[in-house]
Design a protein around this nucleic acid. Structure first.
Lengths: 136, 136
DNA sequence: ATTACTTTTGCAACATTGTTGCACTTTTAT
DNA sequence: ATAAAAGTGCAACAATGTTGCAAAAGTAAT
């Protein structure tokens, strides 16, 4: 794990203006151990911003590849800081008890695929549902 | 692959009343090679039913385990007939060109997981994004 | 620091989807 | 054919996604 960058550094390195909403969202996600819903981020950051601004901020950060969204079974969407490594495998652990989602180290996952002829893999998402270490 | 059951047989074996909307939805999904969105099912079945009925039908069929929903990156939800085998691994292929989704035979996928201590796996979802045989 | 330019924000407004209550209709078992 | 149970359609509302536009804030040059 590289030294944690500040939200300003991350934003400027992606040529994005460093605004209050963006910095707030990034800081919350940088501090969080687990992926967060839009509402959770709003709550901890004191509902300072318009919901449209929040919405656009999340899309901007996602489009820049700074964060990524994780969609759960129950249609809930969570956000997490993206690992800067450009991996083709993205894996997450979803605790069915506490509903928390964590990004997994790709080393932990080994997927072998034997697709029918004609199919080409570009990226791979793995979602593991189960009980996390805290709930176990 | 076992012989295809009729929608009536499927419904009665799950103790669900065999109504027009349920039969229509099931028939469309049984005939389809790929997973379908709610709108796609509505369109091919002639918009005969109220959107609330459709909504409740999908939830009923999903709750019974007859169909399952697949959530894509773009938040789109698709539905497909469930394989009756109670596997813990569910894998789907999503073509990023034509946007079609197909359920994959689990034999094609081999996933090895080395989770940190304390974590327990209950189910596993794999989504492969790429180019399908038709688009290649 | 002021200015000019560009981008972002907040607001209004609207579309889409998810969801519930309730009266009416259909299915199913007798 | 009838009654009980379950499903449907409608109305209504909540939550979320999305856009346009004028005001505000960030950025770079003077």
């Amino acid at each position: 794990m590289s030294a944690k960058q500040s939200s300003e550094e991350i934003l400027s390195s992606h040529k994005l203006k460093s605004t209050a909403c963006r910095k707030t969202v990034l800081n919350e996600l940088l501090e969080s151990e687990t992926a967060m819903t839009e509402q959770e981020i709003k709550d901890v950051s004191g509902n300072l911003f318009d919901r449209v601004t929040f919405y656009r901020t999340l899309r901007t950060l996602e489009a820049a590849g700074i964060i990524h969204s994780i969609i759960l079974d129950n249609n809930q969407v969570k956000y997490a800081i993206s690992d800067m490594r450009q991996d083709t495998v993205h894996s997450h652990f979803h605790c069915i008890k506490c509903n928390e989602v964590q990004c997994l180290n790709d080393d932990a996952i080994d997927v072998k695929i034997a697709l029918p002829p004609g199919f080409k893999t570009q990226s791979l998402d793995v979602m593991i549902n189960g009980i996390c270490n805290h709930c176990n």
